[in-house]
Amino acid sequence: MTTASGGDATAAPPAALAGLGLSFGYPDSAPVFAGLDVHIAPGEVVGVLGPNGGGKTTLLRLLSGSLTPDEGEIRLGGEPVRRGRRALAELRRSVQLVFQDPDDQLFSASVTQDVSFGPLNLGLDTAAARERVTWALEALEITDLAEQPTHLLSYGQRKRVVLAGALAMRPSVLVLDEPTAGLDPEGVESLVQTLEGLRAAGTTLVVSTHDVDLAWRWADTVLLLDRGRLASGQAREILADPALLAAARLRPPWAPAAGRALRAAGLLPPGTPGPATPEEAQRLLDEAAG
C-alpha cells in the first residue's frame, strides 16, 4: 500500500528535503499537522494535493523555513536543520518558496533590482550578483523584461520574475505554491516546460496544485494532504486510486479513465500507460479511425 511508502524513501539516497514528525498549529486554532513525515527525493517533481484548508501552504512554508514546526525537524540533504539564525538562513537559501500571488514577493519596481536582492543578501559582490541575475532571467526566458517596471508586467510575467528571484539564490529545492493558478493553458504549458528545464539541471521541485490532471502528467510522486498526510507515493499509483482521492476530497484525473477506455477498445496494449493529455488520446483515436 502506497500510504506507507514514506518509510522507504528514507532508505536509499538521502532525501533532498525531509520533515520528520512535524507538528504545527496556528495560534488560537486546531493543529494543522501532528507528527507528519515528508520525504522528498533529489531531482523529483513532488505534487502536493489536497483540499483548501488541508495544510498545503502550511507544509510548504514549514519545508522552506518560513514557519518553524512546533515539534519535529526539517532535514536538508539528510542533515537536521538546527534551531538558530544561521541554520535557518541556510535552509531558506537552499529551499526557495514561491508564493501564489506574485505581488506578495515583488518589492521593487525594477525587475533587475528585484532579482538581485537575494544574491546581494548572500554577500555576493556586484559583478557576481549581476551574473546571477542574468542567468536567472535567462533560465526563466525573460531576459527581455530586465528593463521593464514590475507594475507594467502581466500576471504571468510577474510570476516568472518572482521565480527568477528565487532561482537567483541557486536553491537545491524550489517550493511552488499553486504556480499554475491564474495562468491560461498556454501559460501553464510554457511554465511547466521552463520548470522541467530547471529540474533537468538538478533542481528538486515541490509543487502544490489543485489540478490533478497536471499532477498526473507532471509529478513523479504525490503527497495527499488533508490536515495530516493521507498518502504519498508514485503519482500514477496514488492518482489512480479513487478511494484515496475521495478521502482527500479530490476528483480523479481523466487520464487513467481514458487509458482504461483505450485499452478496452484495444487501441492501447494492456499494461501501457494511458495518454497524458487529451490531445494524445485524440491522436490515438484518429490513428485507429484513419
Binding site: 537559501r93 508564493f99 518589492f107 525594477s110 533590482q113 536582492f117 546581494l120 528565487a166 539564490m169
Partner: peptide, 23 residues
C-alpha cells in the same frame, strides 16, 4: 500585503536592508 511581502523577502535572506543592484 506588507506582512506577506515581509515573509516573501525573508525567504530571500532579508535582514533589514533592501540592497539592490542599480543598473
Amino acid at each position: 500585503r506588507a506582512q506577506r511581502m515581509q515573509r516573501g523577502l525573508e525567504c530571500r535572506g532579508y535582514t533589514g536592508e533592501l540592497t539592490v543592484l542599480v543598473d
